[in-house]
């Protein structure tokens, strides 16, 4: 019983941050039709930036709540700067290329971002436990959990609610929905697709960086720690259906809970389980669970 509860709680925490990262990935895919492997780079950069400044702030004796500002600031700064740079330098040249080549280009960017981290932040891990320590922990049903991890639910829910509101209630959001739904029609209607792409890519990048920045206080931020996340958030997006935010939510819950289950019951099988589910979903529903099937006009 207790184990079940632990798995459930861990799974939900895990699902929360997978959702944050995957939401960014799926929006970028939905609008731009780009499977952005560099997303893992945004995540890593968000984490390193946040960890670095949280450490610096605590050395300067700034109050603990300041860390939350740093997390938000890191996510915005990393997402916007890297988003703009990569859109301008890399993606813009490739919009008319084959999908696969664009994926490979973003893979190249990911590798570069990874090594830049090594060059800039060095190979030693960073710790930024201050905000987690500051919030303490609570007992729930006989198990202790740090409050900080639980706040992740709040962040994930805000991202979900926020993106729902954005997509259904604002002008930009409606444009984005229109483009996701029917790109050619959107072009004909005269939406400024270039600008939409830049905004979307940066927004997605901010979400990726936010995932990393928020997770930073709970882990040791070390080289290569983004690889897992990329792979998992891909699984989330593929399972949910590329370009669908509700899909990402369901996918994140599924992957998060499965992973927690695997970690507690069958450690080492974690990736195996997730890829197994992903294969199964793709085999049964090639477009993913929530993406609409598209027809081609002939």
């Amino acid at each position: 019983m207790q184990l079940l509860f632990t798995i459930l709680l861990d799974g939900l925490v895990y699902a929360s941050y997978l959702f944050i990262v995957a939401a960014g990935l799926t929006i970028i895919f939905g609008v731009m039709k780009i499977l952005n492997v560099a997303h893992g780079g945004f995540y890593a950069w968000g984490a390193y930036t946040a960890a670095y400044f949280i450490g610096a702030a605590s050395e300067m004796g700034l109050p603990d709540w300041f860390a939350f500002l740093i997390i938000a600031g890191s996510a915005l700064a990393v997402g916007i700067v890297l988003g703009l740079l990569i859109e301008r330098i890399v993606l813009r040249r490739l919009y008319d290329h084959e999908e696969i080549l664009i994926v490979l280009a973003t893979f190249g960017v990911f590798l570069i971002l990874e090594d830049l981290i090594l060059l800039i932040f060095g190979v030693n891990p960073y710790f930024a436990y201050q905000p987690m320590v500051a919030l303490g922990s609570v007992e729930m049903g006989g198990i202790f959990r740090d409050v900080y991890s639980l706040t992740l639910f709040g962040v994930a829910l805000s991202v979900a609610a926020g993106s729902w509101w954005m997509l259904t209630r604002t002008r930009w959001g409606k444009l984005i929905t229109a483009v996701i739904h029917d790109r050619e029609m959107a072009l004909i209607v005269g939406i400024n697709v270039r600008r939409l792409f830049v905004v979307t890519f940066c927004a997605g990048a901010v979400l990726g960086a936010l995932g990393g920045a928020y997770i930073a206080p709970t882990v040791s931020v070390a080289p290569g720690f983004a690889v897992d996340v990329i792979v998992l958030s891909f699984a989330v997006v593929v399972i949910g259906g590329m370009g669908s935010i509700p899909g990402a939510l369901i996918g994140a819950l599924l992957v998060g809970l499965l992973r927690a289950l695997a970690v507690h019951k069958l450690p080492e099988l974690e990736l195996f389980v997730i890829f197994l589910v992903m294969s199964a979903v793709l085999i049964v529903r090639p477009e993913g669970l929530f993406a609409p099937a598209k027809a081609r006009k002939i």
């Binding site: 890399v90 280009a105 893979f107 190249g108 960017v109 990911f110 590798l111 090594d115 060059l119």
Partner: peptide, 8 residues
């Protein structure tokens, strides 16, 4: 960095 750069 080399692999990524070459790829791009």
């Amino acid at each position: 960095l080399i692999v990524g750069g070459t790829l791009l």
